[in-house]
Design a protein around this nucleic acid. Sequence first.
DNA 1: CCATTCATAGCCT
DNA 2: AGGCTATGAATGG
Length: 142
Amino acid sequence: MIYLYDSPLGPISYEWDGECCLRVWLEQHDAEAVLHDDPVSGWLDGYFSRKHVALPLLAPPASGFQEKMRAGLLQIPAGEVRTYGEIAKQLDTAPRAMGQALGANPLPILIPCHRVIAADGLGGFACGLEWKKKLLKFERGF
DNA sequence: CCATTCATAGCCT
DNA sequence: AGGCTATGAATGG
């Protein structure tokens, strides 16, 4: 089931099967219902009110690498950023692979892929650069 | 200082 | 298997 969450930064849709969060869109996808009583919306409430809430159960990573990447990203404190290169070194992989894996990440925001930027500029963002800018701007207030 | 090139590893078709 | 990156470092003008 896909739900819609109306965040201060824009519409967020997510698929929730009652157990774990399967995927997240940074747009009004094909939301079938508006619900505010599951761990995902609870986490989003916490995020946007700058409180720490435990992550809901997430869809299992598609690969072992994505699992490592997830763990690495979750170590980044809110309001801070890393470069693709730094994460790559930490995970003992190549910077380019990071972009690929991050772009394939089905769970933006929950997995804070927006806190990863290029060594010189902003880098890219699968769901639109505007979101990345907005999220980083929001997190600067942490 | 800008443009091009290449090494690199994981993802998609 | 081959092509495509949300990169980065090195090179050449």
